[in-house]
Nucleic acid binder design. Sequence first.
DNA 1: GGTAGGATGGGCT
DNA 2: GCCCATCCTACCC
Length: 200
Amino acid sequence: MLFGRILPRSFYARSTVEVARGLLGKVLVHGPTAGIIVETEAYLGGEDLAAHSARGLTQRTRVIFGPPGHAYVYLIYGMYECLNLVAERDGRPGCVLIRALQPVSGVDLMRARRGATRKLEQLANGPGKLTLALGITRAHNGADVTRGALVVRQAPGAGEIEIAVTQRIGITRSPELPLRFLMAGNGFLSARRYNEPSLK
DNA sequence: GGTAGGATGGGCT
DNA sequence: GCCCATCCTACCC
């Protein structure tokens, strides 16, 4: 399955919120595995204290300040890896955390990577789960997602999507910001408890 | 249905 | 030394 065209760099060279909303319904592809992006979170520059970039440019956050359309992958809690896609123009911080996927290709491989037998809904319904399922690691940090093995593609029959907005999950700083975006009613979301649409 | 606790290591004060 | 943008299991309704 090839899906649609690869999203060009101009897609990412916009405000982080625009990119976070725009990624919903697109297809994240890594080799033979792929899933529809159903949940994202925006991490901004400036007043967003939850963003890794809020502490400034360091070795770790270098990619977030770089050109758009690249992957920022980091280790969380010593065990899991999270995938972000860099937004904003070169020199400005901003990235989008991919939080959940609806598996559409390479499901058997995804199951094998995830270990125990699991329902399709639980294969990639969390930021640490989807990197495991798709085989994405810190080795992809800085990778260009407009070419190569890890890319985001347009979905073939993409129509209008109903987007719900909530607060972000698992953060302690700037928790009030409405920066989590999800496909309303989708069955592959993380943290089901928080999925009541509060805004749009 | 729900939640409490632990695993585990890198980044930054 | 403390803090995490998490996940799973065990255990309790």
